[in-house]
């Protein structure tokens, strides 16, 4: 496989040609913040948190869906990028209802961690206080749309790993939300196998285990990583392959 040489933050880095800028950076130990990216499922470039600067282009590019190329010169943490990223996180906080102090994911949340990383000590945009619902119809899990950041990690993990495709997106603009089956209560879904992968994949307190209370919802991402790594290495039996 062809190897490409590029520079990230003025460091010479080599990567396989199939790799993304995000892969190459991570292999080199260079941190790029992400939210919609989840190891082991496809990338969709939705959250724009991983934006990087590439010399010769004025447009910022999402590292998780940009393939490496020979001679690329990349900057991952300029002042401009830091400003954008903080703005993105502020937007996410302003357009949902994030009340960390009473959230199941308090202290264990990727969004909250990102806010800390971006130095977000307050949200300068006006809070929207949208009216959103909570679905507790599933026996074991619940979804609180107030905390959902529309990253679609649940959609992808359920479709690509569990192959149930229970989750999907519905609505446009600020009415966008995730749905189960034909936009019906999760507990009435025929396709859901109750495997819990969406719960592990969800970066926030949106999907949680029934009965968990403030700060209790830790996502056991390692279980998911075990499955996805095994699949990558071909140690996972796929029916029909």
């Amino acid at each position: 496989m062809a190897v490409k040489t590029l520079t990230i933050n003025d460091r010479l880095v080599s990567a396989r040609e199939s790799e993304t800028v995000l892969d190459a950076a991570r292999d080199a130990g260079i941190h790029i913040p992400t939210l919609c990216h989840l190891e082991g499922v496809s990338n969709i470039g939705a959250c724009r948190l991983c934006l990087v600067e590439i010399s010769g282009s004025n447009k910022l590019q999402p590292a998780c869906v940009t393939k490496v190329a020979e001679g690329m010169e990349i900057q991952t943490n300029t002042e401009r990028l830091q400003k954008y990223r903080r703005m993105i996180i502020e937007l996410l906080f302003a357009e949902g209802n994030h009340i960390c102090s009473v959230c199941v994911a308090n202290g264990n949340c990727e969004l909250q961690n990102l806010a800390v990383e971006m130095g977000m000590n307050h949200v300068s945009l006006a809070y929207q206080f949208p009216q959103r619902t909570v679905d507790l119809s599933h026996d074991r899990f619940g979804i609180d749309h107030n905390r959902c950041v529309l990253c679609t990690r649940c959609v992808r993990v359920c479709d690509e790993i569990e192959a149930a495709h229970t989750w999907d997106m519905a609505g446009r603009g600020h009415n966008s939300h995730v749905i189960t089956d034909l936009n019906q209560p999760w507990g009435t879904s025929d396709s859901c196998t109750s495997c819990g992968k969406c719960l592990m994949a969800c970066p926030t307190g949106a999907i949680f285990a029934q009965g968990s209370t403030v700060g209790e919802m830790t996502k056991e991402r390692s279980k998911l990583e075990f499955i996805t790594t095994a699949r990558k290495k071909g140690e996972w039996l796929v029916v029909g392959s």
């Binding site: 906080f93 209802n97 009340i99 102090s101 307050h122 949200v123 809070y127 206080f129 949208p130 009216q131």
Partner: peptide
């Protein structure tokens, strides 16, 4: 800083 619990009522308008 955020409205927090006090602002829980806001979505009810």
């Amino acid at each position: 800083v955020t409205g927090n619990v006090t602002a829980l009522r806001n979505p009810l308008r």
